[in-house]
Simulated assay, not measured.
Amino acid sequence: MIAVFLYNILLIVLYALAMALSINYFLRRKQTLFLLITIYLLFFIFDNAIIYMTEFINSFASSYNETFMSIPVAKTIIYVVNAYCSLLIVNNLLKRKTSFFQYGLVVILTLWMSMIPLLQNSATKVWLYYLPNQLFLFYLGLYGWLHLRKATDFSAARYFYTKWVSLSSIVFGLLILLEDTYVIYQVDQYTILNVKINNRNISEDIFSMLICFMLLHFLFRAEEEEKQAVVEEKEDVQFQLFCRHYGFTQREQEICALLLEHKSNQQIADEIFLSLGTVKTHVHNIFIKLNIKKRNQVIEVYENFHKSGKINTEVSSAV
């Protein structure tokens, strides 16, 4: 029981961490994708909390299982919200609009889970209740995979995460269905005198953990890329101010940037498609403006320019 308790705690902590980072990213970027992910993870936590209580509180388990067999409101809400959010998330990743057909699938899913509980209690009734959810997950994975292969305007990161989310949905849609089938027909009991349900699906837990780990990796990677972009933008501004201070022409700016990268005259000529003689002339003019005679002094002047505080004066005058 201690292992099960720790397992539940770790799951909730993982969901909560991923959700907190998603909320933070949404508040900073205002991107709908992260709002949808936040809601999706919130219902992961809600679902896991209910399952946890059925495993540790017998009175709650009995009451919940009886309610589930007649009016499974909580489970239906969880599945419908997660189906709707996952649909929008996949379309957001694919940069596609959600079609009326897909909205219709969510409506059919909702109606199905609302009507199945009216059947007579049996293992088949429970299996039919869960069936469309796993099929819907499989459909989303297949839909994402097929449309991803047609995409041409994806960044490497978006392609990577969309691909793995799609593949995970295909694989785990089938695994969850297989596990449900075995547990419902071989482990659970649905008799008039005794209703005993195993509410946890390990395959579903593994799928949710994979989604969380992919999200965490994506958010940390995005954070690093954002910081790098800020640094590069700052360096670009500093370089522009430096060039403006010394009155460089556009071509001299290009060559100066390459000089700061320790490029030789021949390398510069090859990179910007100029003759060697033309490059030498521009380098000579840069040396005159910087009042230097050696190539390595370009870097010294550049570094001293920023250390001297001249950049602050340049920024103020620009404003």
Rank of each mutant, 00 (worst) to 15 (best):
V4N: 14
I9P: 12
I9T: 15
L10T: 03
L11D: 08
M19L: 15
A20D: 12
R28L: 08
L33Q: 09
N48S: 12
A49D: 11
E66D: 13
S70F: 15
P72L: 00
K75G: 05
V80T: 13
V81N: 00
Y84P: 02
L88M: 11
I89R: 04
K97T: 07
S99P: 13
L105H: 01
S114G: 10
P117T: 07
L119F: 05
A123F: 05
W127Q: 05
P132V: 00
L142I: 13
G144W: 00
R149D: 15
D153H: 10
S155L: 07
A156R: 15
R158K: 13
Y161D: 13
W164S: 01
L167C: 14
I170K: 04
I176K: 04
D180L: 00
I192P: 11
L193Q: 15
K196W: 11
K196A: 10
R200Q: 14
N201R: 01
I202R: 03
C212Q: 02
L216E: 09
H217R: 03
F218D: 01
E225T: 04
E226Y: 09
E235P: 04
Q238Y: 06
R244T: 12
Q250T: 14
E252R: 03
C256W: 02
A257D: 09
E261I: 10
E261K: 09
S264P: 06
N265C: 11
Q267A: 07
D270C: 00
F273T: 12
L274S: 12
L276P: 14
V279C: 04
I288D: 13
N296F: 04
E303F: 03
F305C: 03
K310P: 05
N312Q: 10
E314K: 05
E314N: 10
